[in-house]
């Protein structure tokens, strides 16, 4: 239902009712921010990139057809913003910019918390060593609101292919994770 509403809102934005972009922003800002952040960008960079996505939505609003999901269209732009930010040439680079120590965890200290923190740091390190495309697939699949059908639309492939891509990316992540544990 929300997706239908999103599409209707975006069509209004397309027809000049720019105020409606504020509603779309409120609905999607957190998961877009989470997408960029989990891809290994610093919080301030992630915020800038969210801003860039909405600037692009505004700039290319006339090209929005209303076919397919708004979220898929938005995340395709988000992927481009991320590529542009880091340079398309380094599309398959291993990410080295993530400094796990900068990961903000604001909960109280405790054993469980320390374990969790270590796991998160290890996961971030493993993720940073995955090629960008695989990292994107995993981060997008983690967004619980996105179904495989929607993920497929974002990636521009069939639903089955999207599942296979997530599966293989998870496998690669596991292998890197194990390697890091044994180092």
């Amino acid at each position: 239902m929300q997706d239908l509403d999103d599409n209707a809102l975006m069509l209004k934005v397309k027809n000049g009712d720019l105020d409606k972009l504020g509603l779309l922003y409120e609905r999607h800002k957190k998961r877009l921010f989470g997408f960029f952040y989990n891809l290994g960008n610093a919080p301030s960079e992630s915020e800038d990139m969210v801003q860039n996505v909405f600037m692009r939505i505004l700039k290319y609003r006339k090209s929005y057809t209303g076919e397919g999901l708004f979220a898929a269209w938005m995340f395709r732009m988000a992927r481009n913003v991320n590529y542009d930010h880091h340079g398309r040439s380094s599309k398959n680079r291993s990410l080295e910019m993530v400094d796990p120590d900068t990961v903000r965890l604001e909960r109280e200290e405790g054993d469980d918390h320390l374990d969790k923190k270590e796991n998160t740091q290890q996961l971030n390190r493993a993720l940073s060593l995955l090629p960008t495309e695989k990292r994107e697939v995993l981060v997008l699949s983690k967004l619980r609101e996105l179904k495989f059908r929607e993920l497929a639309e974002i990636l521009g492939c069939s639903e089955g292919a999207a599942k296979v891509r997530v599966h293989r990316a998870l496998n690669d992540l596991r292998k890197i994770y194990i390697q890091l544990e044994t180092v």
Partner: peptide, 12 residues
Amino acid sequence: NSMQNMNAPEPS
């Protein structure tokens, strides 16, 4: 499961 537990801070 580890992916599902991944968190992000709140944007400012």
